[in-house]
């Protein structure tokens, strides 16, 4: 027993994070980031490895969170304390997994119907109050509480635009005459929404890219032994070599990008 404990301790000792590991981390992060970015030039094995690693690491992270923050405290610990009522939701939860075994996949229906019934029961009153009644109320209230003509104009514009958009989505009546006009105006309001959304999407995507570039810049520092530079250089060398070999093989024909 003591031998096993010692073995475990020395195994766990291997996982101590030292300053050296922190520097190495910079290399790993820069390497994985650049491998994924390399797809922008063209598909390559480094990208594929990083892509598959991402799937595994992502699942691994979720697994350990569920293990230590849900299954252990919510199932294992109560069972150890003799609270057997947790067996009901546990079995319902585990029933979901039977979906992968065709012969007994019907058992999973117990878990699914339990989740779906509960979700549906909650969603109805919420949709009615939050996204239906409150929104209609929100379109009327500016007329009551308006503090000036500009407020009143904006309130009227929201209400008018909102009704026009509803006409656009309203397919039960044929779109002609006044209905068609209203639905055409509705399209303009939708376009303003989509335009603003596109503008914001540009900022959002660039922000994410900034985040990665900022990290790459950090790892290009001397304290990380120029990890970014070296990894980038190696990858460029790979692509040059690949191109040379490729051009020998099939006369420089490269798949169109």
């Amino acid at each position: 027993m003591e031998f096993l404990a010692n073995l475990w301790n020395s195994f766990a000792g291997l996982f101590t994070v030292t300053p050296g590991w922190m520097t190495f981390g910079g290399w790993v992060a820069a390497g994985l980031t650049i491998c994924l970015f390399s797809f922008l030039y063209k598909d390559n094995p480094f990208f594929k490895v990083a892509e598959h690693l991402y799937l595994g690491v992502g699942m691994g992270w979720l697994f350990q969170v569920y293990l230590f923050q849900t299954w252990k405290p919510k199932v294992y610990a109560p069972l150890m304390e003799g609270q057997f009522s947790v067996l009901i939701p546990t079995l319902l939860g585990l029933s979901l997994v039977t979906q992968f075994f065709p012969r007994i996949s019907w058992i999973s229906r117990y878990g699914f119907t339990f989740i779906m019934g509960y979700g549906s029961g909650l969603v109805i009153p919420m949709e009615i109050s939050t996204n239906f009644l409150r929104q209609i109320g929100g379109s009327i209230s500016p007329f009551i509480g308006a503090t000036g003509p500009w407020d009143l104009f904006n309130g009227a514009l929201v209400a008018f635009g909102f009704i026009c958009v509803l006409f656009y989505f309203f397919f039960s009546v044929e779109h002609k005459g006044a209905v068609k006009k209203a639905s055409n105006i509705g399209i303009y309001f939708l376009m303003l929404y989509f335009g603003a959304a596109f503008g914001n999407t540009v900022m959002g995507r660039f922000s994410l890219l900034y985040g990665r570039f900022d990290d790459l810049y950090k790892y290009s520092d001397a304290s990380y032994f120029y990890a970014t530079h070296v990894v980038l250089g190696l990858l460029v060398a790979y692509f040059v070599l690949d191109k040379l070999v490729l051009s020998k093989k099939n006369g420089g024909q490269e798949p169109a990008h």
């Binding site: 549906s120 109805i124 996204n131 929201v158 635009g161 958009v165 989505f169």
Partner: peptide, 26 residues
């Protein structure tokens, strides 16, 4: 103003869809 009008139209559409689907499931 205009974005609220556009979004609200979509929102109500989704809400009605959500309510109907939930009733059908129940």
């Amino acid at each position: 103003v205009p974005v609220v009008a556009g979004r609200r139209g979509i929102m109500i559409g989704i809400a009605i869809g959500g309510i109907v689907t939930a009733l059908k499931i129940i």
